[in-house]
Design a protein around this nucleic acid. Sequence first.
DNA 1: TGTCTTTGCTAAATCGTTTTATATATTTGC
DNA 2: GCAAATATATAAAACGATTTAGCAAAGACA
Lengths: 336, 336
Amino acid sequence: MKKKISINDIARELGISITTVSFILNGRAQEKRISENLVKKVQDFINEVDYKPNSLARSLRTGKTNIIGLMVEDISDPFFSTIARLIEEKSYQNGYKIIYCSTENDTAKTRELIKMYSERHVDGYIIVPPEGIEEDIKTLTASGKPVVLLDRYLPGIETDTIVIDNLESAYHATRHLIDNGYKNIAFVTIDSLQLQMQERLSGYEKAMNEARLPQYVKEIAYNSAQSVPQITAFLHRKKNIDAVFFATNYLCVSGLKAISGMGAKIPQEIGVVSFDDYELFEMYSPAITTVAQPAEQIAEHAINLLLTRLKKNTAPKKVERIVLSTSFIVRNSSIR
Amino acid sequence: MKKKISINDIARELGISITTVSFILNGRAQEKRISENLVKKVQDFINEVDYKPNSLARSLRTGKTNIIGLMVEDISDPFFSTIARLIEEKSYQNGYKIIYCSTENDTAKTRELIKMYSERHVDGYIIVPPEGIEEDIKTLTASGKPVVLLDRYLPGIETDTIVIDNLESAYHATRHLIDNGYKNIAFVTIDSLQLQMQERLSGYEKAMNEARLPQYVKEIAYNSAQSVPQITAFLHRKKNIDAVFFATNYLCVSGLKAISGMGAKIPQEIGVVSFDDYELFEMYSPAITTVAQPAEQIAEHAINLLLTRLKKNTAPKKVERIVLSTSFIVRNSSIR
DNA sequence: TGTCTTTGCTAAATCGTTTTATATATTTGC
DNA sequence: GCAAATATATAAAACGATTTAGCAAAGACA
């Protein structure tokens, strides 16, 4: 249990002041006209004893922690974990650490987590916001901390946001089913007022209206343990449905269980398309057609925006609102 | 950008000393004989202005951060993310926060991460250790920080460890294939000296030896992008193989791709069993038989052990070495 | 009345940094 | 040769908490 060495020890050991050591440590030696001789001596000593500044003390003094708080819906969801990994990597290269957590789309939990992050003095936030968190985000930005929102657009919040073109993507996916001859296409989504979900619905509606086809929308409670029986019941009730467009990957997983449980054949008896790609969809038989979000791009934009805000402490001149487009991956489940 | 309130502000505002405020804050009012009157006044004020102590300052002074560092192999692997979630939940209930990261089984990266955690002054560690990290772990425990190791046993390291019974589990899985009439059973594993992998191999060997059956072992490099073609080539070369036991879930995923690419029928032409359960295995056709690790138990034991060490700052009297047993989930892929 | 306890509170040191203001030599300019 | 400029380094005040040691007033006891 050896004692950690401090800047004081170094100064005492070398018979100089801690101010000098601090300046050298922070690369301000030249600016502060410390002789090269002394700089070398200090650096050598620091290397020798493997001294690392105490980050707590430093943060306490400077008010910066070099930590970014990342809040996604569910870190075990492949879509979000991919994004987290990419953001983490980029942050490290820029001297920032990431701490992440899952909101589970729970407003109260998210509120708690924001509070916790703020108590830990993170320098900036990247958040996939649940419903009803608007005020907390506002408080955050008002406190001067940069915030980048992902995946969802919150009307009335003046902060950088990165979303995908949900309406267009859903429209395209629905059209694909229509073009493959499906007529009674259902849209299975979650019971959420989140704008991105509404837009996916609008995309579906637009395509169906254009084609003058009947619409079947089923809403499932988020995180419901009953999603499989609920979807099964829905499909049983509407026997003429010949295709389903699932609004998220986990809904589709439940849907596949339901369809398989009913013994229906994909794609002959029922066509399937899902939002958000997933390894399972590629390996399932038949492979599932999906709308894939550009995870790399999302991560890239998010961290770049945040880093820009962190670098220049000036208030953002203009809020950025980035809309990315998705790619549509056609697999067997939607072709007949 | 309003200023945060400090303990100083409170003391000044109420015309008392910060010492008093601090005592009340830390629940030592009674012990320190602060009058109930004053306690109430201070607490009311604190609630009113929503004061939160600065955690950096507190940690700097106390040397405790109330943060646990969790390092798993890959946070996007369902096995590890499940464990992470469980550990996180339990920690919160005990006033500890978790920060986690993925080692990717990379020794150098892990070393970096340990250093980073140590610089952040985490109070304790839960680590899934890669190969060659023994010395770093020793340094850690020597520095007095409690460390709990998961999933892998490191010989010669005196610290609490939680593992599963790899040999017995692998033996059981192999026996299952033998009992189902498979004769030429291959074992596909990673090229790692990690003890848990060696034990899985031993379990396979033991069962095969007992049954006097020929052994086919294929090692794939960890994180190899070539795992699918490598497994394909292996199966092509050894045409008589009629079953494969995969040592990890990601190897099995690659294996399924290989088998599907070759057009072989599971389980008629080739039986499959995997270590580590995965949602994909349940949904695959046919569903894949697996050895499932007791994630809840692992998480529970890990956090309990660590919390015990953190509570009593006394040095551990005796290191705990917990061996948990797995459950074997029989699905279609291994029955004929 | 004088001493001893108890009650109720606080001053000041400390954790390990950064940063502002300042001190002391040494050079330069003229 | 003297003032001004420059080079080199430092003392001390923050940052916001915890904790040790101790002080004054009031009550208890003889």
